[in-house]
């Protein structure tokens, strides 16, 4: 299977007054064309930084990105800012967690949806408006004509996220980055938005990177999952494989710590003791070792390399669950 996006040995460091903060550390990942890949981890694990760095959205003198990012045959890391920007909209697009701050509060919805159409596809003002209305209908916004003329504050959170999705898919991107797209929404609205994304992906043959902290969202909406911890990908496998046969102790601990509607009530949750390691002083060994119930001496001294099972299941652990294959 060809990969649409491939990230090779990418690291992202931020210069801070406390020293260099290593947000993403030697990430390798392939996003296969037409697939949905979940990126899951806790706050501070580097999932958002990884996506933004891959798109080249992190800039400034305090950001140091190393490694290679290849998208659809273009080596993004060797291109200028302007050249990368040409790919936004028709190549890659992104939707963010908080649709209210992502939308411009003083411009009407119609103008914001039409903007990409006019710039990328060179549409006339009136054609772009007609297409914008169609796009709003495509993301199932009722009364699209009226919404075109509204301002973001007049819409509910769910409607705003639908507008963001309409903007993102306006120029038929090949890859959609969705960064916690439903975290700010109620469960019933979340279910609607996730269903919409599933349908749009199928209709438009679009690949998706879905960033989330919610393993439930990952389970029902992705083909592959990457689990991140302390800036690294610690496990990567097809979604069904990962849930059925997880190899990385962190993934297991994360899954055990979440309350579930399909478990009996009143059951005590397992707890992951301790906290994420300080990103300015990464430990020598495995980042999860101090919190891991399977940790041995080697884990605190030697940094584990990525290992792959014969079936392609990737993990970063000296003593994986189920032993070495």
């Amino acid at each position: 299977m060809s990969s649409l996006l491939s990230i090779k040995n990418m690291s992202v460091n931020f210069d801070t007054p406390r020293g260099s903060l290593e947000a993403v550390r030697g990430v390798d990942i392939e996003i296969p064309a037409g697939m949905s890949v979940g990126v899951v981890g806790e706050s501070g694990s580097g999932k958002t930084v990884m996506c933004r760095a891959a798109m080249g959205l992190l800039q400034g003198s305090t950001v140091n990105r190393t490694g290679t990012v290849i998208f659809d045959g273009h080596e993004l890391t060797a291109m200028s800012k302007e050249q990368v920007r040409e790919l936004f909209g028709s190549g890659m697009a992104m939707i963010f967690q908080d649709p209210l701050t992502a939308l411009n509060p003083v411009r009407r919805i119609g103008v914001q949806v039409a903007e990409g159409l006019r710039i990328r596809l060179g549409m006339s003002k009136s054609d772009a408006m007609v297409r914008s209305k169609e796009l709003l209908e495509l993301v199932r916004i009722p009364n699209a004509a009226a919404v075109l003329k509204s301002f973001p504050y007049q819409l509910s959170g769910g409607m705003r996220q639908r507008v963001m999705i309409a903007i993102a898919i306006a120029c038929n991107p090949k890859l959609l980055f969705a960064d916690e797209p439903t975290t700010a929404l109620d469960v019933t609205v979340q279910a609607q938005i996730l269903q919409l994304l599933r349908e749009l992906r199928e209709d438009l043959k679009m690949s998706m990177v879905l960033v989330t902290h919610d393993l439930g969202v990952v389970a029902g909406n992705t083909d592959y999952v990457a689990v991140m911890y302390a800036g690294e990908i610690v496990e990567y496998a097809p979604t069904t494989k990962l849930f059925a046969d997880m190899r990385m102790p962190y993934t297991e601990a994360l899954l055990d710590s979440i309350p579930r509607v399909d478990h009996k009530s009143g059951t005590r949750l397992s707890v992951i003791a301790g906290r994420l390691p300080d990103p300015t002083h990464r430990p020598a060994g495995c980042g999860f070792a101090p919190r891991c119930k399977y940790a041995q001496e080697k884990c605190t001294t030697d940094h584990p390399e990525l290992k792959a099972d014969p079936d392609g299941h990737i993990y970063r652990c000296w003593f994986p669950i189920g032993g070495a294959l």
């Binding site: 469960v187 019933t188 979340q190 279910a191 996730l194 919610d214 393993l215 439930g216 969202v217 990952v218 389970a219 029902g220 979604t239 069904t240 849930f243 059925a244 899954l255 979440i258 579930r260 509607v261 399909d262």
Partner: peptide
């Protein structure tokens, strides 16, 4: 509408 963290129970 609650997402269940198990791909086999969707």
């Amino acid at each position: 509408s609650v997402p269940i963290p198990d791909p086999t129970k969707q």
